[in-house]
Nucleic acid binder design. Sequence first.
DNA 1: GAATTGACGGGGC
DNA 2: AGCCCCGCCAATT
Length: 130
Amino acid sequence: MNQTIPASLLELIYLVIEQIPSGQVSTYGEIAQIVGRGSDGRMVGKALASLPKEHQHKVPWQRVINREGVISTGSARQRELLLAEGVPFDAQGRVILARCRWRGPSPKWAAEHMVQTLAEREEGEQLSLF
DNA sequence: GAATTGACGGGGC
DNA sequence: AGCCCCGCCAATT
């Protein structure tokens, strides 16, 4: 049985991902940061790679991409789903994280589920004035 | 038990 | 931008 990551941790990772609103995205690393418990980006990737069929309809796996705004799987399907949600892409096919990055769970939700909120980042992210 | 791998990330150059 | 190296941690070989 490949229940490698404790079921509770897997469920927690899925639970956090379920909080990402449509039209927004997060990264593997940030999900891990929220989950805490010694998890890291690779583990989040592992969790999604082994996402059970019965969870696919409720876990918005497509909203988790890498820090470069690139769809790690290269999946055209994933890209379509994001486009349909209104996620902005640049000319090079990368998600414009500066415009649609999920800010993480509310302090209240985080406290209720014993997870972390995203540390305030002072986005040096240039808001390109197109 | 060691080495490799992976839907990763940060930092340096 | 690109490239490279290192840390991370569980699963697999």
